[in-house]
Computed example of a mutant assay.
Amino acid sequence: MKNNFSDSLFNNTIEGILIIENGFIKDINNTMLNILNYDSKNELIGKLATGILIPNVKKKYLEYNNETYEEITLISKNINMIPAIIKITDFIMDDRKYKMVFIQNLTELKKKEMLLLEQSRMAAMGEMISMIAHQWRQPLTSIAAAVSNLKFRANLDKYEKETFIQKLSDIDKYLNYMSTTIDDFRNFFKTKKEKEYISLDSVIEDSLKMVEKAFKNSNIKIVNNKKEMKKLYLFRNELIQVILNIFNNSKDAFAEQKHNEKPTVTINYKDTKDYQIIEVCDNAGGVPEKIIDKIFDPYFSTKENKNGTGIGLYMCKTILEKHCEGNITAKNIPNGVCFKIRVKK
């Protein structure tokens, strides 16, 4: 099918290439052999292409180098699953119809994506520590006051059983609250990747537990127009990461404002035929129109002088598109901005 020059070109492309006729592999280039860890073309030529190309149950598409590719999974010789994207072109030669399949190995890209996700989670950890401090400050103060009171009474030999029992009961209550709080945050940082059968409104509730004290201390009102949503199989922690990122962006935006008598974050819920929708809106002044289309780009930050990483909203977009078959958009509203999160049912 090829002369010497085209044969050399065919075998030295960056992408893997398959030539398929009626579903059977007619030729394969060296790049593809390397991706699949095969030693010889003869091991694959004449075999069904479906033996190495496994399409996703639900078709997924990826923008790569300004081209649209379909995401698939490759099966290597040693039965490893390799993430990849493909583009197919039909051509005719000697009155016979063939398909030329261009394949790009996504293994390194997926590793970088996971690295970005972990980087984003590490950035969130700093926020979490601050939130834990807000959650614990009041009970720690109360425990210290109760202990001091008991010590004072003991030193004066003023032992009153009922008073001591009440103070110890109060301390126990504060400790239980602190234990519950740390469990909420610890669950967030678990590396568990299995989907859970949960509802979006419960994800919001879990997220609010983590920020309520910090928001209260910053005089930010939260209006949660809660609506009970049907449960879906979702990645709980990753969705919490999305919600927390939006909450923290609002908190930072309020901190930059000189005057805002009623800083408010409002959460609304919607249900459509194909999607469940959460809208998180604030009245923190909005995003300049000239950059609102860029805020989901990687490493784009409006906080360059404030230790902004520029990956928070990008990771929100990645999590929703890759793991929830959804998306996130932002639009300015009077005196603020509204983030719309859509999750596929």
Score class of each variant (00 low, 15 high):
246 I>N: 04
262 K>S: 13
247 F>K: 08
279 E>S: 10
237 N>F: 10
266 T>G: 06
254 F>H: 01
272 T>L: 07
270 K>F: 14
280 V>Y: 05
277 I>A: 02
256 E>C: 12
282 D>F: 00
272 T>N: 06
279 E>Y: 01
267 I>L: 01
272 T>F: 09
271 D>K: 12
278 I>C: 03
242 V>F: 06
238 E>I: 04
237 N>H: 04
268 N>H: 01
256 E>M: 13
244 L>R: 02
253 A>R: 14
248 N>W: 12
256 E>F: 14
247 F>A: 00
264 T>H: 05
246 I>W: 02
245 N>K: 07
277 I>W: 08
251 K>D: 05
269 Y>M: 05
252 D>G: 09
257 Q>E: 12
245 N>C: 09
244 L>P: 06
250 S>N: 10
266 T>E: 10
253 A>T: 08
279 E>Q: 13
240 I>G: 07
239 L>S: 08
243 I>F: 06
266 T>R: 04
280 V>E: 09
270 K>M: 10
273 K>Y: 12
247 F>H: 07
265 V>D: 05
263 P>G: 04
242 V>R: 01
268 N>A: 10
253 A>C: 10
261 E>A: 12
265 V>A: 05
280 V>L: 14
262 K>T: 14
260 N>M: 02
255 A>F: 13
238 E>A: 08
283 N>E: 05
249 N>H: 06
244 L>D: 02
281 C>I: 13
264 T>P: 03
261 E>R: 09
276 Q>W: 02
251 K>W: 00
261 E>V: 11
267 I>P: 05
283 N>H: 00
263 P>D: 06
242 V>I: 08
243 I>K: 00
237 N>P: 03
284 A>S: 12
241 Q>P: 02
245 N>S: 14
247 F>W: 04
280 V>H: 01
248 N>Q: 12
274 D>M: 11
270 K>H: 14
281 C>W: 01
271 D>T: 14
258 K>S: 13
252 D>T: 09
278 I>F: 07
238 E>Y: 14
254 F>Y: 04
251 K>P: 08
263 P>M: 01
239 L>R: 04
247 F>S: 05
264 T>K: 05
275 Y>W: 04
243 I>H: 10
276 Q>L: 06
247 F>R: 02
278 I>Y: 02
237 N>T: 03
263 P>E: 01
281 C>P: 01
259 H>I: 15
281 C>S: 15
